[in-house]
Design a binder for these strands. Structure first.
Lengths: 189, 189
DNA sequence: ACAATTTCGCTACCAGTGGTAGCGATACCG
DNA sequence: CGGTATCGCTACCACTGGTAGCGAAATTGT
C-alpha cells in the first residue's frame, strides 16, 4: 500500500510549513515599502525566516510574488447566473483582490518585471493567467482572443489606476468600467 | 537688448545637443534588452556618451525614461472633427506610439518603478500625464474623473497586453477596444 | 593671446540587491 | 543511534543606480 509516486514520505527533516507566513510577509512588506522596496532580505526578516530558506522554495523573487498572487486570488469560484452576472462578478473579484493591501503593487511589479524577463513571463502566464483563462473560456464559450481582450481591459485598467495614483480604483469608477465592459461583452461574439 | 532672463548666453563650454541621440539610444537599448536590461551604462555606451554626462542632465533613470517618452509622444496634435473621431484618434495615437520598438517596454517599466517611488510618480504625472489630461479635458469638456478613466482604460489595456505577451496589440483588438470605448464615451456625462 | 568658466569623458568608487555556497545545528525516519 | 534532508547563519559574488574628482576641450569676454 505504499504509493511511492505521490505520498512516499522521504527521509530527513521535513519542510516547515512556511508558505502562509511568507506570503503574508510578502504582501505586508510590499504594502509598506512598495515593490522595489520589498527586498528579499526584508521579506525574509518580516516572515521570521532565513533568506536562503526562501530561495530553497522559490527560484526567484518574481516566482515568489507570482505564487503569492496565485495564493491570494485563489481559484475562480463557481458563479452561476447569467452571462452578464458572471462577467460582473469576475470584474468585481479582480477589483476587490487588487484593492487588498500590497496586492496591486505586487501585481504591477511582477507584471513589469515580466516585460523584461521571458522566464518570468512564462511563470506568470502559466501559473496565474492560464487557469483563469480556461475557466472563463469554459464558462463563456468564447474564442480565446476575446477572453484575452476582456482580461487585458479589466486587469490593465485596474492596475493602471493603481500605478498612477498609488490607490485602488474607487467603486464608482469600477461600476462605470463594469457597465462599459458588459455592454460590449454581453452577447457572444 | 540683452534679455538676461531667457537668452543671456552664459560663458563656458556650451552643452552639446545630445538629447536626440540619448533618446534614440534609450529606446533602442530597451527594445533589445528590456527595461531591466537597459542599464545606464549600456544606454550611455549606445549613445556614445559618458554615463556621467547623462546624469548631469537627468537626475535619475526614471526621469530619463520619462523625458524620452515625452519626446516620443510629443504634443497631442489638434484633431478637429466629432467627439467620436477625436476619441478614436487619441486611442489610435496611443496604440501606435506604444507599438513602436522600445516604447511600450519603457512605458511599462517606468510606470511600475513609479509605483514604488513617489518622486518618480510626481515626475511621470507632471511631465507626461498632465498635459494630455488638460488637452483631453479642453477638447471634450468632460469632468476630470471621466478623462482619467478613459486614460486608464486605453493605456492600461494596451500596456497589459504588451506586458503579458511581449508584443503590441494587433489591429483587430485595437479596433474592438476602440469600439467599446466609443460606445461608452460617445455622449457627454 | 589669455584668463575665466563651463562642460566633457574618464576612472574610481559606494551602497544596495538578487542570488549562491558552505557551515553546524536540528528534526524526522527506520 | 545512524542516515538524511532541512533550517538558520555568515560570507560572498556580479551587477546596478548613482556620485566624486580629475584633466582636457570648448566657448566667452578682454
Amino acid at each position: 500500500m505504499t504509493r511511492e509516486t505521490t505520498s512516499a514520505k522521504p527521509p530527513g527533516r521535513p519542510r516547515a510549513g512556511i508558505d502562509a507566513v511568507v506570503f503574508a510577509a510578502t504582501l505586508k512588506t510590499v504594502h509598506k515599502l512598495g515593490y522595489a522596496g520589498a527586498t528579499m532580505d526584508r521579506i525574509a526578516a518580516a516572515a521570521g525566516v532565513a533568506k536562503t530558506t526562501i530561495y530553497r522554495r522559490w527560484p526567484s523573487k518574481g516566482a515568489l510574488i507570482t505564487d503569492c498572487l496565485v495564493d491570494t486570488f485563489g481559484p475562480l469560484p463557481p458563479m452561476p447566473g447569467s452571462r452578464a452576472e458572471y462577467l460582473a462578478a469576475a470584474i468585481d473579484l479582480a477589483a476587490t483582490k487588487i484593492s487588498e493591501p500590497g496586492v496591486g503593487a505586487a501585481f504591477a511589479g511582477v507584471f513589469v518585471d515580466a516585460v523584461s524577463d521571458a522566464g518570468l513571463r512564462e511563470i506568470l502566464s502559466t501559473r496565474l493567467q492560464a487557469p483563469y483563462l480556461r475557466a472563463l473560456q469554459d464558462a463563456l464559450g468564447e474564442p480565446e482572443d476575446r477572453i484575452l481582450l476582456f482580461v487585458d481591459i479589466t486587469v490593465g485598467t485596474l492596475l493602471h489606476r493603481m500605478g498612477m495614483t498609488g490607490a485602488p480604483m474607487v467603486e464608482a469608477d469600477v461600476a462605470a468600467l463594469t457597465e462599459m465592459i458588459l455592454r460590449h461583452f454581453a452577447e457572444r461574439a
